[in-house]
């Protein structure tokens, strides 16, 4: 029975009995070619990209690294200021501490109660004439 049924398909022999109007395919092709709209994407030549230099490739990473470094510096600075880690006291400054513990330094530079007479004596010892610096009238007013 199976053989009989297979024979049916064999007898028909892949004919579907369909036809088309005369010259249909030639007409269709001509019509279709005329119908095709402009396809800008497919028909426009693509621009050839210039090869990227080493700097072009590296530049974004360099910029990014610089940005992160900047941010890191800012964060570091603000955190130091915020937590008071920056010690500005004189005690922790070695040079200032040694200077302040040096009597000569104090005597020479920091004494603020030096009288005019002592200055004049020092100048005399250093062979500096007062007349060279200040007029005699104003000196008298200063001393007396």
């Amino acid at each position: 029975m199976r053989t009989d049924k297979e024979n049916i398909l064999d007898i028909i022999g892949r004919k579907d009995g369909m036809t088309v109007p005369d010259g249909y395919f030639a007409d269709f092709q001509a019509r279709m070619e005329a119908l095709l709209p402009v396809n800008e994407q497919a028909e426009t030549p693509r621009e050839i990209e210039a090869p990227r230099s080493f700097w072009d490739r590296v530049r974004p990473f360099v910029y990014m690294a610089a940005m992160f470094a900047g941010v890191w510096c800012m964060v570091k600075m603000f955190s130091m200021l915020g937590t008071g880690n920056v010690d500005l006291s004189i005690d922790n400054n070695e040079i200032l501490s040694s200077a302040l513990s040096d009597d000569t330094f104090i005597y020479e530079y920091l004494r603020d109660d030096v009288s005019g007479r002592e200055v004049l004596e020092d100048m005399y010892l250093d062979s500096i004439s007062v007349d060279d610096i200040v007029p005699a009238d104003s000196l008298e007013e200063t001393l007396y």
């Binding site: 049916i8 028909i12 009995g17 088309v20």
Partner: peptide, 11 residues
């Protein structure tokens, strides 16, 4: 648009 083949039509 057929060629008149009865078997093909039946298929």
């Amino acid at each position: 648009y057929v060629d008149g083949d009865a078997l093909a039509l039946k298929l």
